[in-house]
Every structure is written in C-alpha cells, then in structure tokens.
Design a protein around this nucleic acid. Structure first.
Lengths: 131, 131
DNA sequence: CTAAATGCAAATCATTTGCAAAGAG
DNA sequence: CTCTTTGCAAATGATTTGCATTTAG
C-alpha cells in the first residue's frame, strides 16, 4: 500500500495497521459506510475501538484521502476522495448516473473564481425523471 | 399568510403562532439557519421551546414546505423548498452563499434534458476558499 | 526512547421523546 | 370539549475527548 505509506510520510502520520484496515475497507466497499459500519467490518477479525475508527476517518479526511458524504439520515458516510463530478439521480428508480460533463465542471469552476474563491471541490446532484 | 393556512388545512395541522414564526424566520432569512439558530431568532420576543422548533421543522419538512440542507458540520440547515439554486460554501468559515446563477441553472437543466430526463430539481454545492 | 496512536469510558452536541399542561377548532 | 401542540426535562445516538497504556519510528 504505497499510497498510504506515502501519505503518512508526507503528513507525519504513523503507518499503523488500523489506518490500513480502514482504508482497505473503504477501497473494497461497494457502498458508502458510516463510521459504525466501518468499525463493524473492521472489528471482524481485528481489535479496534470505535474511537479509533472515528479518529482515523478524521485524519484521513483531513489529509484529503477521504470525503465525507453527508446524507440527511444523521450519520456521516465516507468514500475515497476523487474527482468532483456531477451526479444525476433518477427520482423514480433511485439510479445514480455519474456524469462526465466538462462544460458543467468548467462553468462551476469559473463561477467560483468569479466570486473570488478558489474551488476546492463541488457536488452537483440533479434529480430527474424519465418523461 | 394564506399559504400556511392552506397547508395546515390540507395536512390537518393546526395553525399556530409557532409555525408562523418559524416559517417567517426562514422566509426572511438570507442564510440557511440550523434549528438552534432558528430557535435563537424565534425566542427573541417569543416564548418558544427548542423542541417545538425541531418539531415544527420536521412537520414542515414532511409537508414539503421546507428542505433540509445537510452540510458536514453536524447541524441540519433548513430552507424553503422549491428553490433549486447553487450554493457556494466557504470551507474555512462555513459561510454559505446562495447564488443566483442563471447560466449555471440553464446549463444544468440542459444537461439533464440532453440525457433524456426531465429535471425535477438539483443541488449544487461548491466548496471554496478565499485565496 | 519519544511522540503519536489506541482503548475505554466519560463527555458533548444535535435531535427526539414522554408526559402533563395549554391551546386550536 | 377533544385532539393537537407545547414546554421541559430526560433519553438517544452520533461523534469527540481525557487519560493511562501501547507502539511506530
């Protein structure tokens, strides 16, 4: 896991088994688990406290490796950080399309710039129905 | 406040002073206050409990009058439903700017259309920092 | 060895809920 | 008068933190 070693070096973090485990869980996950769920999965076969999971998620998020996905159900979910891109959600089926729309991305960036901000990321969720 | 009377009638809710106050605060707000903040503003001149604010926000949200804005700072923020518009969030200060960007809105709508969807709504959140 | 990381339990913070009292229709 | 709404305080649930102990470098 070179990326993690690299990251730890750069951020002055120590490369612990726990960070490996949490990152591995998120890498292999097909969903977006919350802290408790990550702990549940990590604790299966390892000795790891819930507080450690929270701390790890926080440091990895601060380090830019993870992104928080805040849905409105109270729990914070996590995913590997990556390219900001627009999503279109089919309101009828719940299906999510991740779009690759350069023009939108550029306009979004330009808008932020024109307001005097440097764009750190964005999330565009469009809700639509098939007519 | 005919709209509220109407709503209460349709939903079998009672038209109370508290619902009026909460809705009025959200209508006149230029920001997106959280429950505590709404309570703070409402309590200025009125006798209203925090629990009532929460209950009111929940029933108005369930009734479709309000929308929850879930940022990743732990608190849920509220706004009048229906207003799809882009937001830019200052990552350093937490300040939220609700933008009125026609060009973006149009492009977003066009994008959905070109994908064969009718746009029901969208949420664009941009995260930026002041250089 | 020394500072960072961990486990556990206690502490916070936002939000919800139980219950008796107050208010709308 | 009946049923909803409210206030207050206690309960919940997610996340954070204090502290003594362990561990990576």
């Amino acid at each position: 896991m070179t990326e993690l070693e690299d990251l730890c070096l750069r951020k002055g973090l120590r490369l612990t088994e726990h960070r490996r485990i949490v990152l591995e869980i998120l890498d292999s996950a097909t969903d977006h688990p919350c802290a408790r769920e990550i702990h549940r999965r990590a604790a299966d076969g390892h000795r790891i406290g819930l507080a450690t999971v929270y701390r790890t998620l926080n440091s990895l998020t601060a380090a830019g490796v993870l992104t928080r996905l805040t849905l409105s159900d109270g729990r914070t979910r996590y995913e590997r950080a990556g390219a900001s891109h627009p999503h279109l959600i089919d309101v009828d089926t719940g299906e999510i399309l991740a779009l690759d729309e350069d023009e939108l991305a550029r306009l979004i960036e330009d808008t932020a710039t024109s307001l005097g901000f440097r764009l750190v990321g964005y999330r565009l969720r469009m809700f639509g129905v098939k007519p």
